[in-house]
Amino acid sequence: MSELIVILLSMALINNIILVRYLGLCPFLGVSRELKPSFSMGMAVTFVMLVASLATWVINHYVLIRFNIEYMYIIVFILVIASLVQVIELFIKKTNFALYSAFGIYLPLITTNCAVLGVTIINMMENYTLLASLVSALGSGLGFTLVMAVMAGIREKLDLADAPKSMRGAPVALITATLLGLAFFGFSGIV
């Protein structure tokens, strides 16, 4: 049990997927301008991470390891994630239109979101059990959502600031990320 809590906290805060592992930077710099879409994007990513971790764990253990072709994991994982995203998109479009309009538009972007593939590869390299993989996916997703939301909150204010012309946009966002990253170092002592 305590091991699962360590994984959850480590993935969400200490080794935050955006600030420490640099995964999912495209949506971080692109989408995180307003609070609401950032939050929806975060939820969509968390959901896909959970499903993808489940699917890749099963495939890794019952196909790749069994037939001794673990080295094919890159091509297999990316195809699994791409088809999963398609299926999820179709499914929520048909069943729950409110949900679809909330985060459906972000789903196609997620296929090439390195955070999702990153989490599944980390789970595989760490030899996590199924439960640990799911916890690690949950932690990563929550950490992703948290940083996206915090960043959006800051940028809503930042847009009003009178920054020098050459600093506007990406540079100032990156420097905000620096400060956030330093702040997150404060979490390293909590486990």
């Binding site: 091991e3 360590v6 480590s10 200490i14 080794n15 980390i122 390299m125 760490e126 030899n127 390293s188 486990v191």
Partner: peptide, 10 residues
Amino acid sequence: IAVGRGYGGD
């Protein structure tokens, strides 16, 4: 070979 669990993983 011993395996410890650190922050980043094994």
